[in-house]
Simulated scan of single mutants.
Amino acid sequence: METSDLEYTGTEDQHIPIDLFGSKKHAGVPRGILAFTDASGNIVFKVHRQPPDPNSSSSLKDTKLLLDSNDNPLFSIHRHHNGIWKCYKGSGDENKELVLQVKRTVKTITKVELEVFFAGERLKDNDTCDLKVIGSPFKRSCSVYKDGDLVAQSSLMYKLNQIYVSRGKFRLTIFPGIIDRGLIVALFVIFLNGRK
């Protein structure tokens, strides 16, 4: 799959950044389900954890499903025992089309770095990654880069004169570009679990 296949085709103006607000406490969403809303509070994406199949001999440790606002599966996100994450189009079946693979390159108490490789010919050439994700999962803070350019950035929701900042609510800003917004959210979900 080429990067152009991941272009966002929504009707919104693609020349301005958009903010998504992530939390596990949104009205209309079961408690504990990570959801992302737009600035008006409308649900845009939801993340469901798939229970592991006890009869499977797969190397999978964890599977998450990224859904749109109508509960249609966009991407299935699989974490393997070897520290590699794979993202497929659609539901949790690994026989679906592979979109990207993510490899953790740095893991410390305060910092995680991920290298992202889009599926296709370049996936066989592990010398050059397509995207880099750098930040601190504990602080819900990361930056996504493509060729040195900032693609997306996340941070906790700070308020003026706030002494304690909850890690339960955060902002994900996606800058104009060709990367699918759902794919950026999927990368952020991988990043949040990047220390595991």
Score class of each variant (00 low, 15 high):
1 M>N: 05
1 M>Y: 01
11 T>W: 09
12 E>M: 10
12 E>D: 11
12 E>I: 07
14 Q>S: 07
14 Q>L: 13
14 Q>Y: 00
16 I>C: 05
19 D>M: 09
22 G>D: 02
23 S>T: 14
26 H>D: 08
28 G>R: 09
29 V>L: 03
32 G>A: 03
33 I>F: 00
35 A>V: 11
35 A>L: 08
41 G>A: 01
41 G>R: 06
41 G>D: 04
42 N>H: 15
44 V>C: 15
46 K>F: 12
47 V>D: 14
49 R>E: 14
54 P>G: 08
55 N>D: 13
55 N>P: 01
56 S>E: 01
57 S>Q: 10
57 S>Y: 08
57 S>L: 11
60 L>V: 12
61 K>H: 06
62 D>P: 01
63 T>S: 12
64 K>M: 14
65 L>V: 13
66 L>S: 06
67 L>V: 13
68 D>T: 01
68 D>P: 02
68 D>S: 04
69 S>R: 14
73 P>G: 10
73 P>S: 14
74 L>M: 13
79 R>M: 09
79 R>S: 13
81 H>I: 13
82 N>G: 06
85 W>A: 12
85 W>I: 03
86 K>I: 08
87 C>V: 15
91 S>V: 02
96 K>A: 15
98 L>I: 09
98 L>E: 02
99 V>D: 03
99 V>C: 04
99 V>H: 00
100 L>P: 02
103 K>L: 02
104 R>W: 01
104 R>A: 10
105 T>C: 05
106 V>L: 14
107 K>M: 15
108 T>F: 00
108 T>V: 05
108 T>K: 12
110 T>E: 06
111 K>E: 12
114 L>F: 06
116 V>R: 03
118 F>N: 04
119 A>V: 01
120 G>I: 06
122 R>I: 04
128 T>K: 12
129 C>A: 05
130 D>Y: 00
130 D>C: 07
131 L>N: 04
131 L>H: 07
134 I>E: 11
134 I>G: 00
139 K>S: 10
140 R>E: 11
140 R>W: 08
145 Y>P: 01
147 D>W: 02
148 G>H: 02
148 G>E: 08
151 V>K: 01
152 A>R: 05
153 Q>E: 15
156 L>Q: 13
158 Y>I: 07
163 I>G: 05
164 Y>E: 12
165 V>H: 09
167 R>Y: 07
174 I>M: 02
176 P>I: 06
176 P>K: 07
178 I>C: 05
178 I>A: 04
180 D>F: 04
180 D>M: 04
181 R>A: 04
182 G>M: 05
183 L>Y: 06
184 I>T: 07
186 A>Q: 11
187 L>R: 06
188 F>D: 10
190 I>R: 11
190 I>S: 09
191 F>L: 09
195 R>D: 14
195 R>E: 15
